[in-house]
C-alpha cells in the first residue's frame, strides 16, 4: 500500500459518500445516471469475486464490502425508494449502456493475463469501469444545471482513478518494475474520459460559476 493508492481509495469512497449524501439528504437523484450506477454494481461484483476466497487484508475486505454494499444501495434508492425514484428522469439517461457490456466482455476474452473465469471477469471489470462513467457524462451534458453535489461526485470519481495511475507509476519505478498493461491502459482511458469534465469543473470553480458542460 502506498500513499497514492490510499488517497485513491479514500477519494473513491468519498465520491460514493457524496452521492449517497445527495440522494439521502435531498431525497432526489436528479442529474444522476442510473445506468452508470448499474454498471458500477457489475464492475464491483466481477472485480471482487475473490472476496470470500482470497484474504489480502482486513482493509481490502472491508473496502470491497463497502463498495459492493453502497453501489447496491444507490441502485436500490434510484429504482425502488418511493420518493427518490420519482426524481429519476429516464428520458435524460439515454446512453445505451448495455452496448458496453459485450465489447468489454469480448475484449476480456481476447486480452487477459490468464484464461480463467476469475481473471477474465476481473479483466472485464477493468474494461467496464473505464467506460462506466459515459452514461453519467452524457447526462451531464444534456442537463441544464448540474448541482454542486453531483459535480463533486463526478470529480472525485474521476480523481480516484487518476491517483491510481500515480500509484501504478510508484509501484513500477520504486517497487517491482513489472509492467501491468491491462490495468494501466484501462485506468488511463478511464481518467482521459474525464479530461473535459475536469477542465470545465475547475474552470467553473475558479470563476465561481455554475458548472455547465458544452453539449
Amino acid at each position: 500500500m502506498n500513499l497514492f493508492r490510499l488517497a485513491g481509495d479514500m477519494t473513491h469512497l468519498f465520491s460514493i459518500i457524496v452521492l449517497l449524501l445527495k440522494i439521502h439528504a435531498t431525497k432526489s437523484c436528479s442529474g444522476i445516471s442510473l445506468k452508470t450506477q448499474e454498471l458500477y454494481v457489475i464492475v464491483f461484483l466481477t472485480r471482487y469475486l475473490d472476496l470470500f476466497t482470497r484474504f489480502v487484508s482486513l482493509y481490502n475486505t472491508v473496502m470491497k464490502i463497502v463498495f459492493i454494499g453502497t453501489s447496491f444501495a444507490i441502485v436500490w434508492y434510484m429504482r425502488y425508494h418511493k420518493v427518490v425514484k420519482q426524481t429519476y428522469n429516464k428520458d435524460e439517461d439515454t446512453f445505451k449502456h448495455y452496448f458496453l457490456l459485450l465489447p468489454c466482455f469480448v475484449l476480456a476474452l481476447l486480452l487477459h493475463n490468464e484464461f480463467t473465469t476469475m481473471d477474465v471477469l476481473w479483466t472485464f471489470s477493468l474494461y467496464l469501469e473505464a467506460v462506466a462513467i459515459l452514461p453519467q457524462l452524457v447526462l451531464l451534458q444534456q442537463s441544464r444545471n448540474i448541482d454542486n453535489l453531483t459535480g463533486n461526485y463526478v470529480f472525485f470519481l474521476g480523481a480516484y482513478r487518476g491517483l491510481y495511475v500515480l500509484n501504478w507509476i510508484y509501484r513500477y519505478f520504486l517497487q517491482d518494475h513489472r509492467a501491468r498493461w491491462i490495468p494501466w491502459i484501462s485506468g488511463l482511458v478511464q481518467t482521459a474520459l474525464y479530461a473535459d469534465f475536469f477542465y470545465y469543473y475547475i474552470l467553473s470553480w475558479k470563476k465561481h460559476e455554475k458548472l455547465k458542460l458544452p453539449a
Binding site: 493508492r5 481509495d9 473513491h12 472485480r47 475473490d50 482470497r54 489480502v56 487484508s57 481490502n60 473496502m63 470491497k64 463498495f67 487477459h112 493475463n113 490468464e114 481473471d119 476481473w122 491510481y164 500509484n167 517491482d176 513489472r178 501491468r180 490495468p183
Partner: peptide, 10 residues
C-alpha cells in the same frame, strides 16, 4: 505472478 499481485488493489 503478474495478474495475482495486482489483485491486492481495489
Amino acid at each position: 505472478d503478474n495478474a495475482k499481485d495486482l489483485k491486492d488493489e481495489l
